[in-house]
């Protein structure tokens, strides 16, 4: 996970929600710890898509979690989310 990606995502979360920026860490779980609900998360994904020029595959992630193929930590702990974003950016540029 790049620090730059985390900083941008944390800024987006702080701007989109009412969560103080200093409470957002790479180990924060967006849902369980930061309390971001699914609708607020759409605003965050929208901003992330715009910021990085990607399309976060939220449908596929949700399906994997619902089917037990992945845990929420895999996608919603911020360091993991940012790592996925880095992967999406890299594959887009490839």
């Amino acid at each position: 996970m790049s620090t730059d990606t985390f900083d941008k995502v944390a800024d987006i979360i702080a701007e989109t929600s009412e969560i103080p920026r200093e409470e957002i860490t790479p180990d924060s779980h967006a849902i369980d710890e930061l309390g971001i609900d699914s609708l607020d998360f759409l605003d965050i994904v929208y901003a992330v898509d715009k910021e990085f020029g990607i399309k976060v595959p939220l449908e596929a992630w949700t399906q994997e979690v619902n089917e037990g193929k992945a845990s929420t930590e895999d996608y919603f702990v911020l360091k993991n989310l940012c790592a996925r974003i880095d992967e999406l950016r890299a594959s887009k540029g490839a």
Binding site: V45, Y46, K55, L58
Partner: peptide, 8 residues
């Protein structure tokens, strides 16, 4: 915006 599972 045409997102994954959402639209604006």
């Amino acid at each position: 915006h045409d997102g994954s599972g959402f639209a604006m």
